[in-house]
Design a protein around this nucleic acid. Structure first.
Lengths: 198, 198
DNA sequence: ATTATAAGTAAATGTTTATTTACTTATGGT
DNA sequence: ACCATAAGTAAATAAACATTTACTTATAAT
C-alpha cells in the first residue's frame, strides 16, 4: 500500500496554524487550507474526520503537547520555589515568542467554546497536562512557602501574566521600540513570585 | 419618517453576544442572528455597515465601554494603592461574573485578529480606555510605592489573573462545588498587590 | 512483474454564507 | 388627511462553505 506522505500531513497542520494566527479561527476554511497547503480537500479528510477533529487534534496534540514539553524542559520539581518558577517562566516565554502561531491557538483555547471544552475534557480525564507543576505547587504549599489556594487560582496567578506579556510582546513587535523585553518579563516573574510567597 | 425601533437594535446586540458566548464567534452568522433576533437580515444592515462593523461596534462600544464604566464605578485615583486595586478587582469580578456574554467577547478580543486590531486602534488613538488606572499606576510608581515597569506590564500583572479567574469561575459553575469563590478572588488580589509593591 | 490497497486527486454536491433587490410600513412634519 | 422618508420585510443572489463521489497513483507484499 502507498505510504502516508508525512510532509503533507505536517504542511496541513503548519498552514492551518498560520491561517488561524494571521486571519483568525473564524476565517479558516477547509478549502482555503487545502489550497494553501497544496493538497486536495479530500486529503485533509483522510487524516482528520472533519473540521472539528482537525481543530481539536491541532490544539491538543500539536500545540498544547509541544507547549507542555517546552515549558517542562529541564524543570526539576525538587528545586526551590523561586528557581522553579523562574525556569517555567523562562521556558514559557522563550517558547511562545518563538512560536507565534502556536500561541495564537492557545489564546483561542480560552475563547472558543469548542477548544475550551476539548481542553477541559483533556485536563480532567488525563490530569496529565502540567502534573509536575501541580506537584511542585502542592509541595511548596505543604512546606509553608506559598499561600494555600486552589490549584486553579495558583495557576491563574502564576501563568496568566506571562501569556498577557507574550500578547503585548507580539503587539509591540512591529513598533519602533519593543517594550516587553527579557528584563521586563523577568521583573514581572519576580512580582509573581513575591505575591505568591507567604 | 418612521423612527428606529430601539428594542430591535438592542435585541440584535444582545443575541449576537449570546451566540458568540454559547456557540463561538466562528459560528455567528448574519442569518442566524437575524432569525434569533426576530428581524430581517436587511435590518441588521440598516444599523451596521457589514459584519465586521457589527463585531467591532459590539466589542468597542457595547462591551469594552460597559466594562470600563463598571470597573471604574466609584474608583478614586487618590486612594492608597491597596484600596484602589481591591476596588478595581471587586468591580471587575462582579461585573464579569454577572455578564458572561460580555466576558466571552472580551476573551475573543485577545484571540481574534480583527477585534485585537480594533482594540489596539482604539487604545492608541484615544488613549482613553482605563486612563484613570494609568494615572493611578503612574502616581504610585512616582511615590515609590510600586515597582517601575512599563504600563503594559503593570496591566498584565494587575488584571490578567482576574480574567483567568473569571474563566475558571464559569468553567466550575456547573460542577458540584464552586472553587473560585469571592474569598479566593480576594486572596488572589492580595497576592497581586503584594507582588507589585516595592 | 503483478496486485491489493490505502493515499491521493479534481471536480461535484448540496448547504450556508454575507449581502442586495424590490417591495411594504409606520410616523413626524406639513 | 396626506406625503416624504427612513425603517422594516421577504425573497433572491452569488460566492464560499464542509464534505463526498468517482477516479488515479504509488508502493509493500506476493
Amino acid at each position: 500500500m502507498r505510504p502516508k506522505n508525512l510532509e503533507k500531513e505536517q504542511a496541513i497542520r503548519t498552514i492551518a496554524l498560520d491561517i488561524i494566527a494571521n486571519e483568525g479561527l473564524e476565517n479558516l476554511s477547509m478549502q482555503k487550507l487545502a489550497k494553501a497547503a497544496n493538497v486536495s480537500p479530500r486529503t485533509i479528510y483522510i487524516k482528520y474526520e472533519d473540521k472539528e477533529d482537525l481543530l481539536i487534534k491541532l490544539f491538543i496534540t500539536e500545540v498544547l503537547g509541544a507547549y507542555e514539553a517546552a515549558i517542562l524542559k529541564g524543570f526539576d520539581e525538587k528545586v526551590d520555589f523561586e528557581t522553579g518558577i523562574k525556569k517555567l517562566w523562562d521556558n514559557g516565554f522563550q517558547y511562545l515568542k518563538n512560536n507565534r502561531t502556536h500561541f495564537a491557538l492557545i489564546l483561542y483555547g480560552k475563547s472558543s467554546p469548542l477548544l475550551n471544552k476539548a481542553y477541559q475534557r483533556e485536563n480532567i480525564q488525563q490530569g496529565q497536562f502540567f502534573a509536575p507543576i501541580h506537584r511542585f505547587i502542592q509541595s511548596n504549599v505543604e512546606a509553608g512557602i506559598i499561600s494555600d489556594l486552589p490549584f486553579d487560582a495558583q495557576r491563574a496567578l502564576m501563568f496568566s501574566p506571562l501569556l498577557d506579556l507574550v500578547n503585548e510582546y507580539f503587539d509591540h513587535l512591529n513598533r519602533p521600540i519593543q517594550i516587553i523585553t527579557d528584563e521586563v518579563v523577568s521583573a514581572c516573574c519576580d512580582a509573581v513570585i513575591k505575591g505568591m510567597m507567604k
